[in-house]
């Protein structure tokens, strides 16, 4: 059921993007989110889209998987597009259907907004698809390290994040298993009136919570018996290494940003 979603999953690989340091990828994505807002005309949006496709190409993730796995998001995008066409009444009328008119501005804004959405979702998905959860947390922890000075519990936050990321697939599997066990006992989540369906959620949630709490307790015990004492003075097994590639990719992003700046209205 949930098997098809690829949002937040990691596909191991050896492409250029896979090899990048998580820190550079994180900086890249955050910078990209800002840069997207530079685009405001056809040329700049075209550049943005071309650049996104280039990044996807470099990651060697098949476009088909990306589109297939992000279907819910793409549906949302189509929705905003239609909303824009219906609501925006500026500019010349392009098409008159009698009951509604499609305006030039509406069409343009609709396309631009959904494009912005699309490139953002694609780029952030590429980050999670090419970087293991552990590396993302490591990268984030290192990047946020300066904030320790203002007493932000960076290590603890990173640990919480890595544990949550680690347990998402486990919980999904568990949900699937319990769902099947209850379905085998005749509980029906996908049919009948809403009231019955809501009731059918209880046999799913109770065992799920019970096992999640049990897991959390076991994990805490396991960490304690192995002598975990928090982040103070802790060394790392995985060392992050900043490479020429990382600098290159950020320089490239800077170049794209400069181009957008020059070509925008």
């Amino acid at each position: 059921m949930m098997e098809k979603m690829i949002f937040g999953r990691y596909i191991p690989g050896n492409s250029f993007v896979h090899q990048l340091d998580p820190r550079s990828k994180l900086i890249f994505v955050f910078a990209f989110i800002i840069i997207v807002f530079l685009a405001n005309n056809i040329v700049t949006y075209a550049i943005l889209l071309a650049f996104t496709l280039f990044v996807i190409l470099m990651s060697r993730i098949r476009l088909y998987f990306l589109v297939n796995g992000l279907k819910p998001v793409i549906f949302l995008m189509a929705f905003t597009f239609i909303l824009h066409i219906l609501m925006n009444k500026e500019g010349a009328v392009l098409l008159d259907l009698g009951f509604m008119k499609i305006h030039e501005e509406g069409l343009k804004q609709g396309i631009f907004i959904s494009m912005r959405f699309l490139v953002l979702v694609f780029i952030t998905s590429i980050l999670t698809l090419t970087t293991s959860p552990i590396s993302i947390t490591d990268g984030l922890e290192t990047l946020l390290n300066p904030l320790k000075k203002i007493k932000l519990p960076v290590h603890e936050l990173a640990l919480m994040m890595s544990i949550s990321l680690r347990f998402i697939p486990t919980l999904m599997d568990e949900t699937d298993k319990i769902m099947k066990a209850q379905m085998a006992r005749g509980s029906d989540l996908s049919a009948g009136p809403l009231k019955d369906r809501l009731k059918a959620v209880v046999p799913l949630l109770v065992p799920l919570f019970v096992s999640a709490f049990k897991r959390a307790e076991d994990l805490a015990t396991a960490m304690e018996v192995r002598g975990y004492r928090g982040g103070e003075g802790r060394t790392r097994y995985r060392q992050l290494k900043w490479d020429i590639k990382d600098t290159m990719s950020l320089v490239l992003l800077l170049a794209v940003a400069a181009t957008l700046w020059l070509l925008r209205n």
Binding site: Q182, M183, A184, G186, D188, S211
Partner: peptide, 20 residues
């Protein structure tokens, strides 16, 4: 498929996880 599920009962691996 519900009638089938009544006629074919499955005891899963570690069925104690289904108690609620």
């Amino acid at each position: 498929l519900k009638p089938i599920r009544q006629k074919v009962g499955i005891v899963f691996q570690f069925p104690e996880h289904q108690l609620f």
